[in-house]
């Protein structure tokens, strides 16, 4: 048995946090939760998750800033990031790509997610 992999779920919507947590836990992952970008950075450093599921539109500090900081932090930049957002995928990808200095996200899911696809991607990215 490999050790339980830890996933950091970042979202400000309580119902979505609950959903993703239960879904991931049911599939054998351990879940850590952050409600905004600042918390996301803290938890990423403290818990060293195997993957981060990141929402973009959040109060306090947006996912955009959190994404940038995660990607620019030498200790954290290797953590795969899956974006889960209400925005349409191609435009966000394009937005990130045009920034040049920032790597694109490892995966992009538009809400509402397809559970199976999401789980397959998480499994794939966490090896």
């Amino acid at each position: 048995m490999s050790e339980t992999k830890k996933i950091l779920v970042v979202d400000d919507e309580e119902d979505i946090v609950q959903f993703l947590s239960v879904l991931l836990e049911d599939n054998g992952y351990e879940v850590v939760v952050a409600r905004n970008g600042i918390e996301a950075l803290e938890k990423a450093r403290a818990d060293a998750p195997a993957l981060i599921s990141l929402d973009i539109t959040m109060p306090e500090q947006s996912g955009v800033k959190a994404y940038k900081e995660l990607r620019n932090d030498d200790d954290l930049k290797s953590i795969p990031i899956v974006i889960v957002t209400g925005y349409e995928d191609p435009n966000f990808e394009k937005f990130i790509k045009t920034r040049r200095t920032i790597e694109p996200p490892d995966a992009f899911f538009e809400k509402p997610i397809q559970k199976d696809e999401f789980l397959a991607k998480v499994k794939d990215l966490t090896g």
């Binding site: 119902d15 609950q18 879904l23 209400g86």
Partner: peptide, 18 residues
């Protein structure tokens, strides 16, 4: 508006899953 609706749908999706 689609963006907001997507969040709601995901909330409903989560509720149904639970």
């Amino acid at each position: 508006l689609a963006h907001t609706i997507k969040n709601l749908l995901m909330g409903l999706e989560g509720g149904m899953y639970m």
